[in-house]
Amino acid sequence: MFRFLKLLGKNLAQGPSTDPFPAKEAHTPERFRGRVVVNPEQCVGCRICHHMCAGGAIRIEDNEEKTGYNFTVWHNTCALCGMCRHYCPTKAITLSTDWHNAHTQEDKYDWAAHYSIPYLACAGCGAHIRMLPPQLAARLYAHSPVDMTDLLKLCPSCRQLAAARREEISNDTHEQE
């Protein structure tokens, strides 16, 4: 019993260890998994995040005019598990460290992040494509130094055509030597 009295004495001496949260901002570790944030430029529309999301919080749907797609994340069913961030090929979807998410019932269905991401027309055939993000392209074309800028504007099939044409030209130059 005296051991516990000693502990109480120590407690009294040390004073309260309450962290003054409502008055002062609380410490948030930088690896904290908070609200989901999407970077529209990086998004390629591959829907991996939709496939991985166990809470069904991500919805990717072409808009009516098919000129782009709506990317919606409803935070009220997002379990903050980080699967989308881990498997997104271009790190477009990330988890911020914002945890101030208490809101009233009226905002229940507003508590979502809406992004509309435009399609681009392919330079070659005009098909709807998502431009290849630079770092993904860098990884794809790492081994063959090729002028990147115009390639990025082509849809996959046009890129194959361009690659085949490039091979053909390089073969001709070999034959000429």
Binding site: N11, L12, T18
Partner: peptide, 9 residues
Amino acid sequence: EARLQRRVG
């Protein structure tokens, strides 16, 4: 009692 338990109380 709170101060004994290191709380503000």
